[in-house]
Measured scan of single mutants.
Amino acid sequence: HMTFVALYDYVASGETDLSFKKGERLQIVNNTEGDWALAHSLTTGRTGYIPSNYVAPSD
């Protein structure tokens, strides 16, 4: 899985969403939902949907 870094803070709007903080590292599990991606946080160990425009690929 590619690793991504959060560009902004995001507060989950539902139970299936994943909250994260700017700078948090995430792995995209499934990116077939258009503007949303299923992601796993390497920081918190949690998995949920995130807005895909809130993250960018990290080196």
Rank of each mutant, 00 (worst) to 15 (best):
H1I: 14
H1P: 13
H1W: 13
H1A: 12
H1G: 14
H1D: 10
H1Q: 12
H1C: 14
M2A: 10
M2F: 11
M2Y: 12
M2C: 10
M2K: 12
M2I: 13
M2R: 12
T3N: 07
T3C: 13
T3W: 13
T3G: 06
T3L: 12
T3Y: 14
T3I: 15
F4Q: 04
F4T: 05
F4K: 03
F4L: 07
F4D: 00
F4A: 05
F4S: 04
V5D: 03
V5H: 05
V5G: 01
A6F: 01
A6K: 00
A6G: 04
A6R: 00
A6P: 01
A6L: 05
A6M: 06
A6S: 05
A6Y: 00
A6V: 11
A6I: 03
A6H: 00
L7S: 05
L7N: 04
L7K: 07
L7A: 05
L7M: 08
L7F: 04
L7Q: 07
L7E: 07
L7R: 05
L7Y: 03
Y8A: 08
Y8R: 09
Y8V: 08
Y8I: 06
D9T: 06
D9I: 03
D9C: 05
D9F: 02
Y10G: 00
Y10V: 03
Y10R: 04
Y10K: 01
Y10P: 00
Y10L: 02
Y10A: 01
V11M: 09
V11Q: 11
V11D: 10
V11F: 10
V11W: 10
V11H: 10
V11L: 08
V11R: 06
A12N: 04
A12S: 08
A12K: 04
A12P: 06
A12C: 05
A12R: 04
A12M: 04
S13I: 14
S13K: 14
S13E: 12
G14M: 08
G14L: 09
G14C: 15
G14N: 13
G14D: 08
G14W: 07
E15I: 10
E15K: 11
E15C: 10
E15Y: 09
T16L: 14
T16C: 15
T16V: 08
T16W: 15
T16D: 12
D17K: 10
D17Y: 14
D17E: 15
D17A: 09
D17P: 03
L18A: 06
L18T: 05
S19N: 05
S19T: 09
S19K: 04
S19P: 05
S19A: 06
S19I: 06
S19R: 05
F20E: 00
F20P: 00
F20Y: 03
F20R: 15
F20I: 11
F20V: 11
K21H: 09
K21S: 10
K21W: 05
K21C: 11
K22A: 11
K22R: 09
K22Q: 08
K22S: 07
G23H: 03
G23K: 01
G23M: 01
G23F: 03
G23N: 04
G23E: 02
G23A: 03
G23D: 05
G23Y: 04
G23I: 03
G23L: 02
E24S: 00
E24G: 02
E24I: 00
E24H: 03
E24D: 11
E24N: 01
R25Y: 15
R25T: 14
R25A: 09
R25D: 04
R25E: 10
L26H: 00
L26K: 00
L26R: 00
L26Q: 00
L26S: 00
L26C: 03
Q27G: 03
Q27E: 11
Q27D: 06
Q27P: 00
I28V: 08
I28K: 03
I28F: 07
I28S: 01
I28N: 00
I28H: 02
V29F: 13
V29I: 15
V29G: 05
V29L: 15
V29S: 08
V29A: 08
N30E: 13
N30G: 15
N30R: 11
N30Q: 13
N30I: 11
N30K: 13
N30D: 13
N31K: 12
N31E: 10
N31W: 15
N31V: 14
N31L: 14
T32M: 14
T32I: 15
T32E: 10
T32H: 11
T32W: 15
T32L: 15
T32N: 10
T32F: 15
T32K: 10
T32V: 14
E33A: 12
E33F: 14
E33V: 11
G34P: 07
G34A: 07
G34W: 06
G34Q: 06
G34D: 08
G34N: 08
G34M: 07
G34F: 06
D35V: 11
D35P: 14
D35Y: 13
D35Q: 12
D35E: 13
W36E: 03
W36I: 06
W36R: 09
W36Q: 05
W36F: 08
W36A: 03
W36M: 08
W36N: 03
A37M: 15
A37F: 15
A37Y: 15
A37D: 03
A37N: 07
A37S: 11
L38W: 14
L38V: 05
L38K: 04
L38P: 01
L38N: 02
L38G: 00
L38T: 03
L38Y: 13
A39P: 00
A39Q: 01
A39F: 05
A39M: 05
A39D: 01
A39L: 01
A39I: 05
H40K: 13
H40W: 08
H40T: 15
H40P: 00
H40F: 12
H40N: 06
H40D: 02
S41F: 02
S41D: 03
S41R: 01
S41G: 01
S41A: 03
S41K: 01
S41E: 01
L42N: 04
L42I: 08
L42A: 05
L42G: 02
L42C: 11
L42P: 07
L42W: 06
L42M: 09
T43L: 09
T43V: 10
T43Q: 08
T43C: 12
T43G: 05
T43R: 07
T43H: 08
T43I: 08
T44C: 03
T44W: 01
T44L: 02
T44P: 01
T44D: 04
T44H: 02
T44S: 09
T44R: 00
T44G: 02
T44N: 05
T44Q: 05
G45W: 02
G45K: 05
G45L: 05
G45N: 07
G45R: 03
G45Y: 04
R46L: 13
R46C: 10
R46N: 09
R46H: 09
R46I: 07
R46Y: 08
R46T: 05
T47N: 06
T47Y: 10
T47W: 13
T47K: 07
T47V: 10
T47M: 08
T47H: 07
T47S: 09
G48N: 01
G48K: 01
G48V: 01
G48L: 03
G48W: 02
G48F: 05
G48C: 03
Y49I: 08
Y49P: 02
Y49A: 03
Y49S: 03
I50F: 01
I50L: 03
I50S: 00
I50D: 01
I50W: 00
I50H: 01
I50K: 00
I50P: 00
P51Y: 03
S52T: 15
S52K: 15
S52D: 04
S52V: 15
S52A: 12
S52Y: 15
S52W: 15
S52E: 05
S52H: 09
N53L: 09
N53G: 13
N53P: 05
N53Y: 11
Y54C: 09
Y54R: 05
Y54H: 09
Y54F: 12
Y54T: 05
Y54K: 05
Y54M: 12
V55W: 07
V55C: 06
V55H: 05
A56C: 12
A56D: 06
A56T: 14
A56E: 11
P57V: 11
P57L: 13
P57Q: 10
P57D: 08
P57C: 11
P57T: 09
P57Y: 11
P57K: 09
S58W: 15
S58Q: 13
S58K: 07
S58P: 09
S58E: 15
S58A: 14
D59V: 13
D59K: 07
D59R: 07
D59F: 12
D59L: 13
D59W: 13
D59I: 13
D59N: 11
D59S: 12
